[in-house]
Measured scan of single mutants.
Amino acid sequence: SPEEIKAKALDLLNKKLHRANKFGQDQADIDSLQRQINRVEKFGVDLNSKLAEELGLV
C-alpha cells in the first residue's frame, strides 16, 4: 500500500541521514537527504525514482 511504501522510504532515508551526520558527509548531501524526506512526507514515493529502485519496488 502507499502508506507502507512511504513508511519504508522514510525509514531508509532517515537511516541515510543519520549515517551522513555520524560520518560527517558534505552539508550538501545532508541537505539533499532532508529534501528527499520532506518530498516523501508530502507526496509519497514516485515509482519511477531511484528511491523506488532502492526499495525494490521497480
Rank of each mutant, 00 (worst) to 15 (best):
G24D: 07
I37T: 00
A52M: 08
L47F: 09
N48S: 12
G44S: 01
K15R: 10
L13Y: 00
F23H: 12
Q34C: 09
G24E: 07
E3M: 08
L57R: 03
V40Q: 00
D46L: 05
Q36V: 10
D26H: 10
A9I: 10
Q27W: 09
A9F: 05
A28G: 11
A28N: 10
A28C: 11
H18L: 12
K42L: 13
Q34E: 11
L13I: 02
D11S: 05
A28L: 09
G56D: 06
L47R: 03
D46P: 07
D46R: 04
P2G: 10
S49P: 02
Q36E: 13
D26V: 08
G56P: 02
L33I: 15
G24P: 11
N38C: 13
E54H: 05
A20K: 04
L12E: 07
K8N: 06
N38F: 03
K16Y: 05
K15I: 08
N48M: 10
K15Q: 12
V58W: 04
L13W: 00
Q36D: 09
Q25T: 12
A52L: 08
F23C: 13
D29A: 15
K42H: 11
K42T: 09
S32V: 09
N21P: 03
V58F: 05
K50E: 13
D26T: 11
A9M: 07
L55K: 00
V58M: 10
Q25P: 07
I5E: 03
L55N: 01
N38P: 00
V45H: 01
A52R: 03
P2E: 11
D26K: 09
L57I: 12
A20W: 08
D46A: 06
N21T: 14
D31F: 00
V45A: 02
F43I: 06
E54R: 05
K15E: 13
P2W: 14
E54D: 07
R35I: 09
L33V: 05
L51F: 07
A52E: 02
N14M: 13
K22T: 12
F23I: 14
S32A: 14
G24V: 05
R39F: 15
F23Q: 12
V45S: 01
K50D: 12
E3P: 06
V58C: 11
L10N: 01
F43S: 05
L33D: 00
I5C: 11
E3K: 07
N14D: 05
K50C: 11
N48L: 08
E53I: 13
R35M: 11
D46E: 10
D26S: 14
F43V: 06
G56K: 06
H18V: 14
I5R: 06
N21C: 15
L13R: 00
K6I: 09
V45M: 04
D11W: 04
K22Y: 10
I37S: 01
V45N: 01
G56W: 04
L51C: 04
K50Y: 09
D31Y: 01
V40M: 02
A20V: 05
E54F: 08
A28E: 10
E41C: 07
N38M: 06
S1N: 12
A9K: 00
G56F: 06
N38I: 13
A9G: 05
Q25A: 15
L10V: 04
D26I: 08
K15Y: 02
Q27L: 10
A28W: 08
V58Y: 06
E41T: 09
L51Y: 04
L55C: 01
E54K: 04
E54I: 09
G56N: 07
E4M: 10
K50T: 12
L12I: 13
Q34R: 13
I30G: 02
E4D: 13
Q34D: 02
K22A: 14
Q25W: 15
F23W: 12
E3G: 07
K42G: 05
A28M: 10
R39D: 15
S32L: 14
N48P: 05
A7P: 01
V40S: 01
A9N: 00
R39T: 13
D29I: 15
L17T: 01
R39E: 15
G56M: 08
Q34M: 14
L47A: 07
K15S: 10
L17P: 01
R19A: 15
E4K: 07
N48E: 11
S1M: 07
N38G: 10
K42P: 01
K22W: 09
K8A: 11
V45C: 03
G24A: 09
R39A: 14
N48F: 08
K16D: 03
H18P: 01
H18T: 12
E3C: 10
N21W: 05
N48G: 11
N48R: 09
K42A: 12
R35H: 10
G56T: 04
N21R: 15
E3I: 07
K16S: 05
E53K: 13
I5D: 05
L57D: 03
L33S: 00
D46K: 04
S1R: 10
H18Y: 08
L47V: 09
K22E: 14
R35W: 04
I30S: 03
R19K: 13
A20Q: 04
E41N: 09
K42V: 09
F43G: 05
K50N: 08
N38L: 06
K42C: 12
K6N: 06
N21V: 15
P2D: 13
E3W: 07
L12Q: 06
Q27M: 10
Q27D: 07
L47H: 06
G24N: 09
A7Y: 08
Q36A: 10
I30Q: 04
K22D: 09
D46G: 04
K6T: 07
Q25R: 10
K22H: 13
F43E: 11
G44A: 02
A7L: 13
A20H: 04
Q27G: 07
V58P: 08
K16C: 12
N38Y: 05
N48V: 05
E4I: 11
P2V: 11
K8V: 07
E4W: 14
K8R: 14
V45D: 02
L12G: 02
L13Q: 00
G44D: 02
Q36R: 03
D46Q: 07
L55H: 01
H18A: 15
A52V: 05
D29Q: 14
R39Y: 15
G44I: 01
S1F: 09
R19I: 14
K6P: 00
I30N: 03
Q25Y: 15
F23Y: 13
E41L: 08
I5K: 03
